[in-house]
């Protein structure tokens, strides 16, 4: 959603509703798949940001992809993404999903070097695996992105 189109009170309310009630689904392909479980658990409690895990791609706004995505899994991930209803956001967790990580393209023949080659990605969370704080930081960046504050694009001199 472009902020210029809904630059009214209604738009602000809509954006507020969207960024404060992320219903997400997590696609796990590797060891990183444990980290969103920690993050949603009692110690880090992702639900205070309005995140609720779901089991049905048609009901979610946020797709969390974590871990290794192979060429065999790629068409299924794409089909999964296509089933989600707009507006939809994608968060990529872990080096494997970001760029192939330890299974980079000159070491592994079967791992897709970055899921941005399959689906558009909004936020990348680096780490192998990233800590729950990093995942929460990624989520807050995504909230700010929807709010219209492009924290992730800010340049540091």
């Amino acid at each position: 959603m472009e902020s210029s189109i809904y630059d009214s009170t209604l738009g602000r309310v809509l954006r507020w509703a969207r960024y404060s009630s992320f219903w997400y689904i997590s696609v796990g392909g590797g060891c990183c798949a444990d980290e969103p479980l920690h993050t949603v658990g009692c110690r880090y409690d992702l639900e205070r940001f309005g995140c609720v895990p779901q089991s049905e791609p048609r009901q979610v706004d946020l797709l969390i992809v974590n871990g290794v995505i192979t060429y065999k899994a790629a068409p299924y991930l794409r089909a999964f993404y296509d089933q989600m209803l707009a507006p939809k956001y994608v968060m990529s967790i872990g080096s494997c999903a970001n760029c192939g990580g330890p299974f980079s393209s000159d070491i592994s023949y079967s791992v897709v070097p970055g899921i941005n080659k399959i689906i558009p990605v909004d936020v990348y969370v680096p780490g192998c695996p990233p800590r729950p704080e990093a995942i929460m930081n990624g989520l807050l960046s995504l909230q700010e992105k929807i709010r219209g504050h492009h924290r992730t694009e800010k340049k540091i001199n």
């Binding site: 060429y71 068409p75 760029c99 023949y109 070097p113 970055g114 941005n116």
Partner: peptide, 16 residues
């Protein structure tokens, strides 16, 4: 002797 593929089903096998 196996050579890694350049691309598979339209996905380039190289990091951006």
């Amino acid at each position: 002797e196996y050579k890694f593929p350049e691309s598979f089903s339209g996905i380039q096998h190289q990091r951006d």
